[in-house]
Computed example of a mutant assay.
Amino acid sequence: MLSSLTRIFDPMVRLLVLALVLALLAPVPDSRQELGQWIANAAIFVLFFLNGLRLPRDQVRRGLTDWRFHGALALWVFGAMLLSGWAIYEFGGGLLPPLLALGFLYLGALPSTIQSATVYTSMAGGNIAHAVVAAALLNILGVFLSAPLFAAIAGGDAVAFHSEVLVKIATVLLLPFALGQILQPRFGEIITQSAALTRWTDRVPIGIAVYVAMSGAVNEGIWDRISGSAWIAALIAVFLYLAYAIAGSWVVGGLLTKSRPDRIAFLFAGTQKSLAMGAPLATLMFDPAVAGIILIPLIAYHFIQLVVAAPIASRLNPAS
């Protein structure tokens, strides 16, 4: 229980709550929205550059050797999880506003979050090396796959995925990550040893992206566009989606892996969803008024997964 509370109130969650409260009470004015977007993009550029610096190339090479584990996990995350998000989007239209339903499809298209997948795998006594490499590889794939997969399934009527968006993604996500990987052999160790720098650079850009996106939604009257019953339906859908993710990844991991530690790594790498990828990407793909609403399922999922994952990890650990 104490571990769960610690995760709920960790610095990232507190920063996320602060960003949401600021967006509700003091949103970025419409006249400054473009400036806010430029600041968010600059912060995201730094985030992905440092991600590229931190990820050792030998981890990627080692991960690629276990193609059965990582290939199955990629199919689960970008296949089964994406299809379940599509199911909520497709069949939840009667209970959810279109943009809120679209948020579940967006949630399904995202990769795993590296930090949470690794922490909970460690807490549960799982294969930490597999978890680190798997989440890292999924995030690399997510940079290339999440936006196109989402756009292909959502269709042109739901999201305008045109050349300008591709240029933004390439400039703000792919370019800095590639630069980081190029410079990783020389400067990667310096970055990984700077714990304080890592903590702040991981959290602040996400907080800025959420603040800018939610400010746009508030300025467009989010409370008038989403009814009370729709909020309740969305919360229920998030719980159902998480239950499916946990049960499905545990069963699939058991069928595909030979050891319990590997199964645990599959569970947490296949269940956690990356706000670090989702929030920045949403600010690049959607107009501010749209991005805030589409991010609601992801933000809710992020909170709830932290609450649920800690007790599951403690229960799975034979030493606890």
Rank of each mutant, 00 (worst) to 15 (best):
L175V: 06
E90F: 07
G94L: 05
N127H: 13
A124M: 09
A196K: 14
K168Y: 02
D157N: 15
V143Q: 08
Q184V: 05
W200A: 13
H130T: 02
T118R: 11
V167D: 04
L105V: 11
F91P: 07
I153H: 00
A129F: 02
A117N: 06
L179D: 08
P185E: 12
M123L: 15
V172R: 01
G126D: 13
G155E: 04
G156R: 12
W200M: 10
S116P: 05
Q184P: 05
S112A: 15
G155T: 05
E189K: 08
R199L: 15
V167C: 01
L95W: 14
A124N: 10
L96W: 02
L96N: 03
T118D: 02
V165H: 01
Q181C: 11
N139D: 13
F187E: 01
L145I: 12
F177W: 12
A131Y: 14
L137K: 02
I128R: 08
I169N: 00
T198F: 10
A135E: 11
P176M: 09
R199F: 14
A152C: 04
L107R: 03
V167L: 05
V132F: 14
G92K: 04
L102N: 04
G142K: 11
K168H: 06
E189Y: 01
P98C: 01
G103L: 09
L105I: 05
S122E: 11
Q193I: 00
F150A: 09
L138Y: 03
V133C: 12
A124K: 12
G108T: 07
T171W: 08
A129M: 02
F144A: 14
W200V: 11
I114R: 04
L110D: 13
L99W: 00
G108F: 02
N139C: 03
P97Y: 06
V165L: 02
L110I: 06
V143H: 01
A154H: 06
E90T: 12
I114P: 07
L102I: 03
H130C: 06
L110M: 14
T121M: 11
L102H: 04
F177A: 13
L99P: 03
A170F: 15
V133M: 14
T118Q: 12
Y106K: 00
I88F: 03
F150E: 02
V132H: 08
G103M: 10
P111H: 07
I128V: 13
L173M: 12
L149S: 03
P176H: 14
L95K: 12
R203W: 04
G126V: 10
A109Q: 07
V159Y: 01
S163R: 05
A101N: 01
T198Y: 07
S112N: 14
A170K: 08
G103Y: 05
Q193M: 06
Q193S: 09
Y89P: 10
L107V: 09
A134R: 09
V172Q: 00
Q115C: 07
G156I: 05
L100E: 06
F187C: 01
V167A: 11
L105R: 11
N139L: 08
L95N: 08
A136D: 10
F161M: 01
S122M: 05
I153W: 00
F104Q: 07
S116M: 15
G180D: 06
S194C: 12
V132D: 09
A135P: 07
G108D: 09
V143M: 12
T113F: 10
L183D: 05
I140E: 06
V119E: 09
A124V: 09
H130A: 14
P176K: 02
L141A: 15
A151W: 01
T121Y: 14
G155Y: 00
